[in-house]
């Protein structure tokens, strides 16, 4: 089995050059997984095309990790099919088409950074030079350090280097920035951006809405083992119409405000009143004419509002 046999013809970068984005990187069809009495994944259909950068978003227990584990062949689904580049996940991994960055663990604590990366490179069929992986991950200066002497953020960078070393077509990251400080997170995403710029397909699970908003072409929102929203961040935001008015209103008559046409919800924080409205212009006019409202701000929904709204709607359907 020579390494020459490996077909690189369908790699994402060349697809981009040719203007074709039809290659399917990942395809999940009707996938379910139950652990004891918990339905971790309750029927997921998901297609990721080559070159897409997809954020898998959702609270703890939404089924993100189980979905990723099934996609990687670490867990066998109870029902449904999983395909990676048209074959089984195991085959795709054996071909070096998938690079994975796990959330925690997965390293050898008493190994040195350089040793570990040399080892992982040696296990793959067509790895990039170790030095290049070290530089891309920004850890070229840590080669001689022992893993257990590294900070959480540095370890994540080693895991990132391990993920890109096989020169994969698809990179899967499970909550890659957990435990990083703000600066490390920004640096991490800068490194990640270089990879996506090369046309790699990326799937990352995250808790951080802003990461999904800033770095993903597409956001897949999961809840209770199902995909409840799927689209660009803009599309998901747009699914929640209306704006929020925030104003200081001393002695506000909350009941009267709530009964205004188009006002969906009223909250107070001391003298500050938050109004969620379908028609903010009309509500604003009323506030200015009939109340002592001042320090008024009008904001449109952000991704967080959208996620909360979708999640709340989902809860209602379940109830």
């Amino acid at each position: 089995m020579g390494r020459d046999e490996r077909s690189r013809g369908c790699r994402a970068p060349s697809d981009k050059l040719l203007g074709m984005t039809t290659t399917t990187a990942v395809s999940l069809r009707g996938v379910t997984k139950k652990y004891a009495s918990v339905q971790a994944v309750a029927g997921v259909d998901l297609t990721i095309r080559a070159g897409e950068v997809v954020a898998l978003l959702g609270p703890n227990g939404a089924g993100k990790s189980t979905t990723i584990e099934m996609l990687l062949g670490l867990v066998k689904p109870d029902n449904g099919t999983v395909q990676v580049y048209g074959g089984s996940p195991t085959d795709a991994i054996a071909q070096g088409q998938v690079g994975v960055m796990l959330q925690s663990g997965g390293i050898i604590e008493d190994a040195k950074v350089g040793e570990l990366l040399n080892l992982v490179a040696g296990l793959h069929r067509d790895p990039m030079p170790v030095q290049e992986a070290l530089e891309r991950a920004g850890i070229a200066d840590l080669t001689g350090r022992t893993m257990k002497a590294l900070s959480g953020g540095q370890k994540q960078r080693v895991r990132f280097a391990m993920a890109i070393i096989p020169q994969p077509d698809l990179i899967v990251l499970d909550e890659p920035t957990t435990g990083m400080d703000v600066e490390s997170r920004r640096d991490f995403w800068a490194s990640m951006h270089e990879e996506t710029a090369r046309g790699r397909t990326v799937l990352f699970a995250t808790h951080y809405l802003e990461e999904a908003d800033s770095y993903a072409d597409r956001v897949v929102l999961m809840r209770n083992g199902k995909v409840v929203a799927d689209g660009t961040a803009a599309q998901i935001k747009a699914s929640v119409s209306g704006r929020t008015i925030r104003a200081t209103i001393p002695g506000a008559d909350l009941a009267a405000l709530a009964s205004l046409p188009g006002v969906r919800n009223v909250e107070t924080r001391g003298e500050v009143v938050l109004l969620q409205c379908a028609d903010s212009d009309n509500t604003l006019r009323h506030l200015l004419e009939n109340t002592t409202a001042h320090d008024i701000e009008v904001t449109s929904a952000d991704l967080e509002d959208a996620v909360l709204a979708i999640s709340a709607a989902q809860e209602e359907t379940l109830a």
């Binding site: 062949g73 991994i93 994975v100 663990g105 997965g106 296990l123």
Partner: peptide, 16 residues
């Protein structure tokens, strides 16, 4: 120790 640290998972994600 390697099993506990999840190293075996990492290995399963390589062609080894």
């Amino acid at each position: 120790a390697e099993r506990d640290g999840g190293w075996n998972r990492t290995l399963r994600l390589t062609p080894l």
